Structure formats: C-alpha cells, structure tokens
Amino acid sequence: MSETVRGEAASLQRGLAILELLAERPDGATLSELTDALQFPGASALRITRTLVRLGYLSRDERSRRFFLTNRFLLLGQPRGREHALTECALPAMRTIRQATGETTHLCCLIDDEMVIIEQLLAAHPFKYSADIGARCPCYSCAPGKAIAAFLPDDEQESLLGRIRFKPFTDTTITTRRAFRQELAGVRACGFAVDRAEGMDGIHCVAAPLLDRHGAAVAAITIAGPSSRVRDDEFEVIGEIVREGARRASEEFNGQ
C-alpha cells in the first residue's frame, strides 16, 4: 500500500471517528475537545473538520466554536421512491394535513427501534409543539412508531419486538410486549395510530404509515399537539385526515 493510500485511509478513519463522536454529543464539541477525546493531532483534526463543514456534514457555531452534525446524514439515509426522495413525496400531503388540523406535522422514519424526525411543518397556533429534526424517541411510545411497526413485514416486526426494552415515560406508556402487539393489531385494522400522552405528558399524536408498493411501511406522517386541542374524541376524524394524506404520499412515493 502506497504512502498516499495509507494517508487517505487514516484521514477517512479519523473523519468517521469524529462523526461518530459528535453523533453521541448533541451539544457538539470544540476542536480541542475532539482532539482530546480522540487523541488526534490538532492539525489533522482541523483539516478534517474543515473538509466536513465544507461538504455539509458538519456545522460550526461561530460564537461557541463548537462543531455539530448536520441533517445531511438523514437525507442520505431516507428511502427513495421511483423518482423522488421521501421528503419530496411527503411534503405536499404534509402541508394539506397541517392546513386541515392546524397542528405540527412530522415525517418520521424508523432507525433500529427508534423513531427519527426527518421533516417538520410547525403548527399554525401561537402555542405549538416542535422538535428538532433528527430527534429520536422509542417507537413504542409514539404514534408514528406504532404506525410503522404495525405495517412492517412479519419477520421485521418480530425482530423489532425482540429488540425493544420497554420502560414507562408517563402513566399511559405501553410497557409490555403483549400490550404492544395488541396495540399494533388495532393500528393495522384501522390504518392509523394514536399516542395518548405516552411519550410526553400533555401531548397527543395521530399518525399513519407511508407504504411502499408491497404494503410495507417506509415512514409515517404524524400530527402532534397539546391534548387540549388534539382531543381523544377527535382521534377518528384526525386519523382519517392523516391516513388520507399518508395514502397520497404513498402513491407519490411509488410513482402511481
């Protein structure tokens, strides 16, 4: 192996190490913190971080001098339809859903056993629920997680259920595999899922799956808002709105 190839391989390894470290640090890290944690030469770390910033994989806050991961990795990893990326296919339906409900609308994907927000349209109300793009939560404690899990192929669903380690976040969180199976059967039957303040007190969600050509879930569209506005007695009406929007997004994703 030539010196040039070895040098390129070392730089690649160091770049990946920086990305992996920052993935575990939502508050970011300064250059000195990166070099201390990874034991890299300062000049090498500076060159690599500058390159990653230029390519759009990192951002740097000019005031704190801290580096952060950008959302570029979410865009790389999201499913693609026949012609467009997932977000492009879902955004028109998301806008319609937000207009109809007035609430914050999210597009979410499943990564391992967690839901990840990859797109967000904020509510029209002065008081609104919001979350950072890239925010994660356990799939069993949120409506989009249930919506996707209910429409996974049987083997993938079983694998997912085997990985989940249930714990309560609120008084209404599902905490057993049996209860989650029953919940998924109900979601499968009606076509949408609800979150009755199971992940966060006072916040309700309603979600429906975005399906591929084989009927398997690749994502979910969800609305989220305070329980005073997203009320239990309106779940059916909101569920139909979200389900119809997800159906249109599915058609766009599948090129129909």
Rank of each mutant, 00 (worst) to 15 (best):
M1N: 12
M1D: 10
A10P: 01
R14E: 11
G15F: 06
L21W: 02
L31F: 07
E33M: 11
A43K: 04
T49A: 05
L52I: 11
L52V: 12
R54W: 04
G56V: 06
R66W: 03
F67Q: 03
T70G: 09
F73E: 11
L75S: 12
H84S: 12
C89D: 15
A93N: 09
I97Y: 09
Q99I: 00
C109V: 15
V116K: 03
I118H: 02
I118M: 00
L121Y: 02
A123P: 02
H125M: 07
H125T: 11
F127I: 14
D132Y: 14
C137N: 10
C139P: 00
S141V: 15
E158F: 01
L161I: 14
R163P: 06
D171R: 15
T176Q: 05
R177W: 01
R181A: 05
E183C: 15
A185S: 11
R188V: 03
C190M: 01
F192L: 02
R196M: 10
R196D: 14
G199C: 04
D201C: 00
C205E: 11
C205S: 14
V206M: 07
V206T: 07
V206L: 06
A219P: 03
S227N: 08
S228V: 15
R231A: 11
I238M: 06
V242Q: 11
R243M: 14
A249W: 04
E251W: 03
N254L: 11
N254C: 15
G255H: 09
